[in-house]
Protein backbone atom coordinates (compact mmCIF):
# COMPACT_ATOMS: atom_id res chain seq x y z
CA UNK A 1 0.00 0.00 0.00
CA UNK A 2 1.33 3.39 -1.01
CA UNK A 3 2.10 5.81 1.81
CA UNK A 4 1.11 9.45 1.46
CA UNK A 5 3.00 12.02 3.49
CA UNK A 6 1.55 15.28 4.72
CA UNK A 7 4.01 17.89 3.45
CA UNK A 8 2.71 20.33 6.06
CA UNK A 9 -0.83 21.41 6.77
CA UNK A 10 -2.15 24.21 4.63
CA UNK A 11 -5.52 25.50 3.49
CA UNK A 12 -6.92 24.83 0.05
CA UNK A 13 -7.89 28.51 -0.32
CA UNK A 14 -4.20 29.43 -0.07
CA UNK A 15 -3.68 27.05 -2.97
CA UNK A 16 -6.21 29.12 -4.87
CA UNK A 17 -4.39 32.32 -3.95
CA UNK A 18 -1.05 30.86 -5.06
CA UNK A 19 -2.61 29.72 -8.33
CA UNK A 20 -4.02 33.17 -8.93
CA UNK A 21 -0.62 34.75 -8.28
CA UNK A 22 0.89 32.50 -10.91
CA UNK A 23 -1.93 33.18 -13.39
CA UNK A 24 -1.50 36.89 -12.82
CA UNK A 25 2.03 36.55 -14.11
CA UNK A 26 1.42 34.05 -16.88
CA UNK A 27 -1.98 34.88 -18.40
CA UNK A 28 -2.78 38.55 -19.15
CA UNK A 29 -6.45 37.73 -19.83
CA UNK A 30 -7.10 36.46 -16.31
CA UNK A 31 -8.99 38.95 -14.14
CA UNK A 32 -10.13 38.52 -10.54
CA UNK A 33 -13.35 39.67 -8.91
CA UNK A 34 -14.19 39.55 -5.24
CA UNK A 35 -17.22 40.40 -3.13
CA UNK A 36 -15.53 41.82 -0.02
CA UNK A 37 -13.61 38.66 0.96
CA UNK A 38 -10.12 39.27 -0.39
CA UNK A 39 -8.42 38.05 2.78
CA UNK A 40 -10.49 34.88 2.91
CA UNK A 41 -9.72 34.06 -0.73
CA UNK A 42 -5.99 34.79 -0.29
CA UNK A 43 -5.67 36.87 -3.44
CA UNK A 44 -3.73 39.81 -1.97
CA UNK A 45 -0.65 39.03 -4.07
CA UNK A 46 -2.63 38.94 -7.33
CA UNK A 47 -4.14 42.32 -6.48
CA UNK A 48 -0.79 43.82 -5.53
CA UNK A 49 0.80 42.70 -8.78
CA UNK A 50 -2.19 43.32 -11.07
CA UNK A 51 -4.25 46.19 -9.66
CA UNK A 52 -5.88 46.89 -13.04
CA UNK A 53 -7.04 43.32 -13.37
CA UNK A 54 -8.79 43.15 -10.01
CA UNK A 55 -12.38 44.25 -9.42
CA UNK A 56 -13.59 44.78 -5.87
CA UNK A 57 -17.36 44.44 -6.27
CA UNK A 58 -18.41 44.96 -2.68
CA UNK A 59 -21.07 42.88 -0.96
CA UNK A 60 -23.04 42.33 -4.15
CA UNK A 61 -22.62 38.81 -5.43
CA UNK A 62 -25.38 38.98 -8.04
CA UNK A 63 -23.69 41.99 -9.62
CA UNK A 64 -20.36 40.17 -9.44
CA UNK A 65 -21.67 37.23 -11.50
CA UNK A 66 -23.14 39.56 -14.12
CA UNK A 67 -19.98 41.65 -14.37
CA UNK A 68 -17.95 38.46 -14.72
CA UNK A 69 -20.20 37.34 -17.58
CA UNK A 70 -19.74 40.72 -19.26
CA UNK A 71 -15.95 40.68 -18.87
CA UNK A 72 -15.79 37.52 -20.98
CA UNK A 73 -17.20 39.61 -23.84
CA UNK A 74 -13.88 41.14 -24.76
CA UNK A 75 -11.88 38.00 -24.11
CA UNK A 76 -11.20 38.22 -20.40
CA UNK A 77 -11.15 35.14 -18.16
CA UNK A 78 -12.86 36.21 -14.92
CA UNK A 79 -12.32 34.36 -11.65
CA UNK A 80 -14.98 35.26 -9.08
CA UNK A 81 -14.24 34.79 -5.42
CA UNK A 82 -16.44 34.53 -2.37
CA UNK A 83 -17.68 31.83 0.05
CA UNK A 84 -19.31 28.78 -1.55
CA UNK A 85 -22.73 29.73 -0.17
CA UNK A 86 -22.61 33.18 -1.76
CA UNK A 87 -21.05 31.76 -4.93
CA UNK A 88 -23.94 29.44 -5.67
CA UNK A 89 -27.22 29.49 -3.77
CA UNK A 90 -27.33 33.25 -3.44
CA UNK A 91 -26.75 33.84 -7.16
CA UNK A 92 -28.18 30.75 -8.79
CA UNK A 93 -30.28 32.52 -11.40
CA UNK A 94 -27.48 34.91 -12.32
CA UNK A 95 -25.18 31.93 -12.91
CA UNK A 96 -27.90 30.03 -14.73
CA UNK A 97 -28.88 32.74 -17.21
CA UNK A 98 -25.90 35.07 -17.59
CA UNK A 99 -23.14 32.44 -17.30
CA UNK A 100 -24.19 28.83 -17.90
CA UNK A 101 -26.98 29.27 -20.46
CA UNK A 102 -24.94 32.01 -22.13
CA UNK A 103 -21.85 29.76 -22.18
CA UNK A 104 -19.61 32.35 -20.59
CA UNK A 105 -16.02 31.54 -19.71
CA UNK A 106 -16.36 32.39 -16.02
CA UNK A 107 -14.54 30.56 -13.23
CA UNK A 108 -16.64 30.57 -10.08
CA UNK A 109 -14.16 29.99 -7.28
CA UNK A 110 -15.68 29.21 -3.93
CA UNK A 111 -14.00 29.03 -0.57
CA UNK A 112 -15.36 27.96 2.85
CA UNK A 113 -17.46 25.14 1.40
CA UNK A 114 -19.11 22.61 3.66
CA UNK A 115 -19.09 22.02 7.40
CA UNK A 116 -15.38 22.76 7.88
CA UNK A 117 -16.15 26.45 7.72
CA UNK A 118 -16.87 25.74 11.36
CA UNK A 119 -17.98 28.23 13.97
CA UNK A 120 -19.95 30.58 11.67
CA UNK A 121 -22.62 27.91 11.50
CA UNK A 122 -25.23 26.74 9.02
CA UNK A 123 -25.98 30.15 7.47
CA UNK A 124 -22.54 29.94 5.87
CA UNK A 125 -21.98 26.17 5.59
CA UNK A 126 -23.40 25.23 2.24
CA UNK A 127 -23.85 21.49 1.70
CA UNK A 128 -25.92 21.78 -1.47
CA UNK A 129 -23.58 23.64 -3.83
CA UNK A 130 -22.22 20.66 -5.76
CA UNK A 131 -25.78 19.63 -6.58
CA UNK A 132 -26.79 23.14 -7.59
CA UNK A 133 -23.83 23.53 -9.89
CA UNK A 134 -23.74 20.06 -11.43
CA UNK A 135 -27.36 20.40 -12.52
CA UNK A 136 -26.46 23.31 -14.79
CA UNK A 137 -25.82 22.11 -18.35
CA UNK A 138 -22.24 22.75 -19.44
CA UNK A 139 -20.93 23.52 -15.95
CA UNK A 140 -17.71 21.79 -14.90
CA UNK A 141 -17.65 21.03 -11.16
CA UNK A 142 -14.38 20.53 -9.28
CA UNK A 143 -13.75 19.94 -5.56
CA UNK A 144 -10.07 19.85 -4.68
CA UNK A 145 -8.53 17.99 -1.75
CA UNK A 146 -5.45 19.92 -0.68
CA UNK A 147 -3.26 22.97 -1.24
CA UNK A 148 -1.24 21.54 -4.12
CA UNK A 149 -4.26 20.23 -5.98
CA UNK A 150 -6.17 23.48 -5.56
CA UNK A 151 -3.28 25.46 -6.96
CA UNK A 152 -2.96 23.06 -9.89
CA UNK A 153 -6.71 23.16 -10.54
CA UNK A 154 -6.72 26.98 -10.49
CA UNK A 155 -4.09 26.96 -13.24
CA UNK A 156 -5.87 24.26 -15.24
CA UNK A 157 -9.30 25.89 -15.36
CA UNK A 158 -7.84 29.04 -16.91
CA UNK A 159 -6.97 26.95 -19.97
CA UNK A 160 -10.39 25.31 -20.16
CA UNK A 161 -13.04 27.19 -22.13
CA UNK A 162 -16.41 27.24 -20.40
CA UNK A 163 -17.97 27.87 -17.01
CA UNK A 164 -16.33 26.13 -14.06
CA UNK A 165 -17.26 25.80 -10.40
CA UNK A 166 -14.12 25.32 -8.29
CA UNK A 167 -14.91 24.41 -4.68
CA UNK A 168 -12.44 24.51 -1.83
CA UNK A 169 -12.38 25.15 1.91
CA UNK A 170 -11.31 27.11 4.90
CA UNK A 171 -9.24 24.97 7.34
CA UNK A 172 -5.64 23.92 7.15
CA UNK A 173 -5.58 20.28 6.09
CA UNK A 174 -2.97 17.71 5.08
CA UNK A 175 -1.12 18.63 1.89
CA UNK A 176 -0.20 15.32 0.32
CA UNK A 177 -0.58 15.39 -3.46
CA UNK A 178 2.69 15.83 -5.39
CA UNK A 179 3.63 19.47 -5.81
CA UNK A 180 4.18 19.02 -9.54
CA UNK A 181 1.11 16.89 -10.29
CA UNK A 182 -0.61 18.21 -13.40
CA UNK A 183 -4.33 18.75 -12.97
CA UNK A 184 -6.41 17.03 -15.62
CA UNK A 185 -10.07 18.09 -15.55
CA UNK A 186 -12.34 15.05 -15.52
CA UNK A 187 -9.57 12.56 -14.80
CA UNK A 188 -9.75 10.65 -11.52
CA UNK A 189 -6.54 9.85 -9.67
CA UNK A 190 -5.96 6.33 -8.38
CA UNK A 191 -4.27 6.79 -5.01
CA UNK A 192 -4.17 3.21 -3.80
CA UNK A 193 -4.93 -0.05 -5.50
CA UNK A 194 -7.08 -2.56 -3.64
CA UNK A 195 -9.35 -5.51 -4.34
CA UNK A 196 -12.14 -5.67 -1.72
CA UNK A 197 -13.80 -2.25 -1.90
CA UNK A 198 -13.57 1.00 -3.85
CA UNK A 199 -13.51 4.25 -1.91
CA UNK A 200 -14.14 7.29 -4.08
CA UNK A 201 -13.61 10.56 -2.25
CA UNK A 202 -13.56 14.24 -3.10
CA UNK A 203 -12.33 17.39 -1.34
CA UNK A 204 -11.33 17.17 2.31
CA UNK A 205 -12.57 13.57 2.47
CA UNK A 206 -9.74 12.28 0.26
CA UNK A 207 -7.21 12.43 3.11
CA UNK A 208 -9.74 10.79 5.42
CA UNK A 209 -10.17 8.01 2.87
CA UNK A 210 -6.42 7.37 2.87
CA UNK A 211 -6.40 7.08 6.68
CA UNK A 212 -9.43 4.79 6.50
CA UNK A 213 -7.71 2.58 3.94
CA UNK A 214 -4.68 2.22 6.21
CA UNK A 215 -6.87 1.17 9.11
CA UNK A 216 -8.86 -1.20 6.93
CA UNK A 217 -5.65 -2.85 5.83
CA UNK A 218 -4.94 -3.69 9.45
CA UNK A 219 -8.27 -5.54 9.48
CA UNK A 220 -7.24 -7.37 6.33
CA UNK A 221 -9.49 -5.36 4.02
CA UNK A 222 -7.89 -4.16 0.80
CA UNK A 223 -9.38 -0.81 -0.22
CA UNK A 224 -8.86 0.92 -3.54
CA UNK A 225 -8.83 4.70 -3.06
CA UNK A 226 -9.71 7.11 -5.84
CA UNK A 227 -9.39 10.89 -5.63
CA UNK A 228 -12.16 12.22 -7.82
CA UNK A 229 -11.57 15.96 -7.90
CA UNK A 230 -13.89 16.50 -10.88
CA UNK A 231 -17.51 15.67 -10.12
CA UNK A 232 -18.67 16.81 -13.53
CA UNK A 233 -17.73 15.55 -16.03
CA UNK A 234 -17.43 12.35 -14.03
CA UNK A 235 -14.61 9.95 -14.85
CA UNK A 236 -17.01 7.07 -15.37
CA UNK A 237 -14.37 4.77 -16.80
CA UNK A 238 -12.17 5.00 -13.71
CA UNK A 239 -15.07 4.21 -11.38
CA UNK A 240 -16.37 1.36 -13.53
CA UNK A 241 -12.96 -0.21 -13.86
CA UNK A 242 -12.53 -0.18 -10.11
CA UNK A 243 -15.95 -1.51 -9.09
CA UNK A 244 -15.74 -4.29 -11.67
CA UNK A 245 -12.74 -5.45 -9.68
CA UNK A 246 -13.93 -4.79 -6.12
CA UNK A 247 -17.69 -5.30 -6.44
CA UNK A 248 -18.69 -2.54 -4.01
CA UNK A 249 -18.16 1.17 -3.44
CA UNK A 250 -18.16 3.85 -0.75
CA UNK A 251 -18.40 7.50 -1.79
CA UNK A 252 -17.20 10.23 0.56
CA UNK A 253 -17.79 13.97 0.38
CA UNK A 254 -18.40 17.04 2.53
CA UNK A 255 -21.85 17.61 1.02
CA UNK A 256 -25.43 16.45 1.26
CA UNK A 257 -25.91 12.93 -0.11
CA UNK A 258 -28.69 14.45 -2.24
CA UNK A 259 -27.03 16.13 -5.18
CA UNK A 260 -23.48 15.18 -4.40
CA UNK A 261 -20.70 13.03 -5.82
CA UNK A 262 -22.28 9.85 -4.43
CA UNK A 263 -25.51 10.57 -6.23
CA UNK A 264 -23.68 11.11 -9.53
CA UNK A 265 -21.87 7.81 -9.11
CA UNK A 266 -24.96 5.85 -8.08
CA UNK A 267 -26.85 7.22 -11.08
CA UNK A 268 -24.07 6.15 -13.41
CA UNK A 269 -23.69 2.70 -11.82
CA UNK A 270 -27.44 2.06 -11.82
CA UNK A 271 -27.48 2.16 -15.59
CA UNK A 272 -24.06 0.72 -16.35
CA UNK A 273 -23.02 -1.67 -13.61
CA UNK A 274 -25.33 -1.92 -10.55
CA UNK A 275 -23.10 -2.05 -7.49
CA UNK A 276 -23.74 -1.96 -3.73
CA UNK A 277 -22.89 1.56 -2.52
CA UNK A 278 -22.71 3.38 0.80
CA UNK A 279 -22.67 7.17 1.15
CA UNK A 280 -20.41 9.12 3.49
CA UNK A 281 -22.13 12.50 3.26
CA UNK A 282 -24.51 14.62 5.29
CA UNK A 283 -28.00 13.18 5.47
CA UNK A 284 -30.27 15.95 4.23
CA UNK A 285 -29.50 18.25 7.13
CA UNK A 286 -28.12 21.71 7.80
CA UNK A 287 -24.89 22.09 9.74
CA UNK A 288 -24.28 24.05 12.97
CA UNK A 289 -21.54 25.87 14.86
CA UNK A 290 -18.53 23.98 16.15
CA UNK A 291 -14.93 23.27 15.30
CA UNK A 292 -14.33 21.58 11.95
CA UNK A 293 -13.19 18.39 13.66
CA UNK A 294 -16.24 18.28 15.95
CA UNK A 295 -18.58 18.83 13.03
CA UNK A 296 -16.96 16.22 10.80
CA UNK A 297 -17.21 13.75 13.69
CA UNK A 298 -20.81 14.59 14.55
CA UNK A 299 -22.03 14.49 10.95
CA UNK A 300 -20.07 11.34 10.07
CA UNK A 301 -17.57 12.75 7.62
CA UNK A 302 -14.20 11.37 8.73
CA UNK A 303 -11.98 8.30 8.46
CA UNK A 304 -14.00 6.43 11.09
CA UNK A 305 -17.23 7.02 9.20
CA UNK A 306 -15.60 5.74 6.02
CA UNK A 307 -14.41 2.55 7.78
CA UNK A 308 -17.95 1.92 9.06
CA UNK A 309 -19.41 2.50 5.60
CA UNK A 310 -16.92 0.01 4.14
CA UNK A 311 -17.91 -2.57 6.73
CA UNK A 312 -21.58 -2.07 5.82
CA UNK A 313 -21.07 -2.25 2.09
CA UNK A 314 -18.94 -5.43 2.36
CA UNK A 315 -21.93 -7.25 3.87
CA UNK A 316 -23.99 -6.33 0.81
CA UNK A 317 -21.60 -7.70 -1.83
Amino acid sequence: MKKYIDQGKNDTRSGYGAGMTELGRSNPNVVALCADLVGSLKIEKFIEENPDRFFQIGIAEANMMGIAAGLTIGGKIPFTGTFANFSTGRVYDQIRQSIAYSDKNVKICASHAGLTLGEDGATHQILEDIGLMKMLPGMTVINTCDYNQTKAATLAIADHHGPVYLRFGRPKVANFTPVDQKFEIGKAILLNEGKDVTIVATGHLVWEALIAAENLEKEGISAEVINIHTIKPLDEAAVLKSVKKTGCIVTAEEHNYLGGLGESISGMLATQHPTPQEFVATKDTFGESGTPEQLMEKYGLNDKAIVKAVQRVLTRK
Binding site: F55, N63, A69, L71, D93, Q97, Y101, S102, D103
Partner: peptide, 30 residues
Protein backbone atom coordinates in the same frame (compact mmCIF):
# COMPACT_ATOMS: atom_id res chain seq x y z
CA UNK B 1 -30.25 33.60 -26.07
CA UNK B 2 -26.75 32.82 -27.28
CA UNK B 3 -27.29 29.07 -26.99
CA UNK B 4 -28.52 28.56 -30.56
CA UNK B 5 -25.84 30.88 -31.95
CA UNK B 6 -28.06 33.69 -33.17
CA UNK B 7 -25.74 36.47 -34.42
CA UNK B 8 -26.16 39.76 -32.60
CA UNK B 9 -26.95 38.30 -29.17
CA UNK B 10 -24.16 38.33 -26.61
CA UNK B 11 -25.92 37.16 -23.47
CA UNK B 12 -29.23 35.56 -22.57
CA UNK B 13 -31.80 37.81 -20.93
CA UNK B 14 -35.37 37.44 -19.80
CA UNK B 15 -34.95 36.71 -16.14
CA UNK B 16 -34.99 40.38 -15.24
CA UNK B 17 -32.44 42.62 -13.61
CA UNK B 18 -29.23 41.04 -14.89
CA UNK B 19 -28.37 43.06 -18.00
CA UNK B 20 -26.79 46.11 -16.41
CA UNK B 21 -24.21 44.02 -14.56
CA UNK B 22 -23.30 42.27 -17.80
CA UNK B 23 -23.07 45.61 -19.62
CA UNK B 24 -20.76 46.93 -16.89
CA UNK B 25 -18.53 43.87 -17.27
CA UNK B 26 -18.35 44.40 -21.02
CA UNK B 27 -17.57 48.08 -20.46
CA UNK B 28 -14.76 47.17 -18.05
CA UNK B 29 -13.37 44.74 -20.62
CA UNK B 30 -13.38 47.56 -23.20
Amino acid sequence: ATHEGLPGIRVASGSLGQGMSVAIGAALAK
